[in-house]
Design a protein around this nucleic acid. Structure first.
Lengths: 324, 324
DNA sequence: ATGAAAGCGCTAACAC
DNA sequence: GTGTTAGCGCTTTCAT
């Protein structure tokens, strides 16, 4: 059951049927209706593989994320999928936990001739040059001339740190992820900006964006002599590990330790009096990323733009009311 | 850059190059190597759209879930994607929150000629008949002759209920999701089996698998005269709402209320002394689903099998030590 | 074991 | 406006 059948059923030529169903070019209103009815009667469904092959437009968009077990990416993916579906695209998803996997994923995606790629870079130095437009989401790679949609993490973590300073904290540690991720650097930069000019020593622990590191780093912090009174976790995963460590070590939040984090998973609200955190506008970021991508499909050589969106602060009792 | 170029570069015929690269049919070892080298030199990447069009094998597998913001489905999707990638397939994902969306999603997927569909049914009565094999995951639709991979929820919830009975509870409410989901019915059935033959009254609240319902149902339960001493939530989302209600109403777990749930999101461990729950072997379910699907690709008319896997119980202090 | 040729379903270019 | 035709890149069949 193909276009040819529809054309026959409608008593029109092959091309007219095509033009009608993909509405391009002129078709007389009457003919148009006849074709549409015929298609309907036969239950015609276009073959996107064939259409894509011929037109070089697969109507497939790829999403390349480190791990969509991570609720953060899951929510982002869902938002992207929603936008895309409304525009008649399908989402094809690939995950990559390291540079090698990422390269493989990109090549595999290229084989399907995806129209565009939304990428959360895993290896920021990977040369992901492909023939379709790419937009980076959340993090930024080191590639020049790639559009990106980010959150203003720097300001967010500056604010988080300032709130801690206001409450009298002078020993504040920050646990971040991979040293080569823009998100680690930006978030740490916000922290450093806040303590610059004060006598508060900088203590940033680089590791990786997962709970194992959150737990380990927290233990490290408490095994040191210097008595840290506040910890900032750069991601919910890190926060999860840090919280686990506190529970196991009998450290109470906020009594023994002030705590702040990033994003807003549901469990933040259930943990004690809630966790203070900086929350990125994930859905909007996703929407804008799709927007940028489709823009570039229309005009492939428009200037690559970097969009940085502001986030908001989620209140929560975890930073306490201030030091005695 | 296409097969033709590779063939030319290798100095062989078009078809020989194809046979080599998709290793089907006879190719002499020497020729083979020449083709492989040529492909490598040119950085040849096959066009899967073209291959799929011709061979009716797109190497695309679709995943149809209600919502992958839901960590449960996210983890399942990740597991499926992992299996598939190793087998050279790509995953194309669609979500549907109701029957209409589900139907649209299936039709759209069909247009891409996916080789198979892994489906978590949203509308159990939707006639999802398509030309490719389908396997149902986690829930089962009402369609006959569709293979499914499920968890033995009934036994799991029976055990959960029994643990509560053993601790002396006689007023146990169960909050489940949609009335027409097999998961609601099976989980409720486990609960009923456990209380059958005791004087414990059955109290099952049907609603939907989300936190709003969890919260609302919990409030309902506490507004009634009868004094419920234990609640079983049929999903983590429901649990999340129930817990939120308890926090707001000042109900302490396990002192005022024993609580049990399903699955094992990370926050269960942070909530008080942990939440007792029944945990499905999600990764294995995903693996088996892929297995079944690919089996049916080989032999489309093998008998549809329903696989029911056992789960395990996660300990947790939320069910307390027993009534005084 | 290999090359030549047909054709998957569609779009786009062209003639009428 | 509409029909006809070529051809996207590949697999598959059929000679050889």
């Amino acid at each position: 059951m193909s276009l040819k059948d529809v054309a026959a059923e409608a008593g029109v030529g092959f091309g007219t049927a095509s033009r009608t169903l993909s509405d391009s070019g002129y078709v007389a209103e009457g003919t148009r209706r006849r074709v549409l009815e015929a298609a309907d009667r036969l239950g015609y469904r276009p073959n996107r593989l064939a259409a894509g092959l011929r037109s070089n437009r697969s109507r497939l968009i790829a999403l390349l994320v480190p791990d969509y077990t991570n609720e953060f990416y899951a929510r982002g993916s869902a938002a992207i999928a929603r936008c895309l579906r409304d525009l008649g695209y399908q989402l094809i998803i690939a995950t990559s936990s390291n540079g090698t996997e990422e390269r493989d994923a990109i090549e595999s995606l290229a084989e399907y001739h995806v129209d565009g790629i939304v990428r959360v870079p895993v290896d920021p130095d990977l040369d992901a040059r492909v023939s379709c437009p790419v937009v980076e989401l959340n993090r930024r790679s080191n590639l020049p001339r790639v559009p990106a949609v980010l959150c203003d993490d720097r300001s967010g973590f500056r604010a988080l740190t300032e709130a801690l300073l206001e409450r009298g904290h002078r020993r504040i540690a920050m646990i971040v992820g991979e040293q080569n991720f823009s998100t680690s650097l930006e978030r740490a930069a916000g922290y450093r900006e806040a303590i610059a000019g004060t006598d508060v020593p900088s203590r940033v622990l680089f590791g990786s964006f997962d709970s194992r590191w959150g737990e380990q780093a927290t233990r490290e912090i408490f095994s040191d002599e210097e008595s840290i009174t506040a910890i900032i976790a750069a991601s919910p995963r890190i926060a999860s590990g840090a919280v686990a460590a506190c529970v196991k070590m009998g450290v109470r939040v906020p009594d023994d330790l002030a705590f702040a984090s990033y994003d807003d998973p549901e469990w933040f609200d259930f943990w004690g009096s809630g966790i203070r955190s900086f929350v990125p506008p994930l859905e909007e970021m996703a929407r804008r990323a799709v927007e940028v991508l489709l823009d570039r499909l229309e005009s492939p050589d428009s200037l690559p733009e970097t969009i940085v969106l502001p986030g908001r602060t989620h209140e929560g009792g975890s930073i306490g009311v201030g030091l005695a």
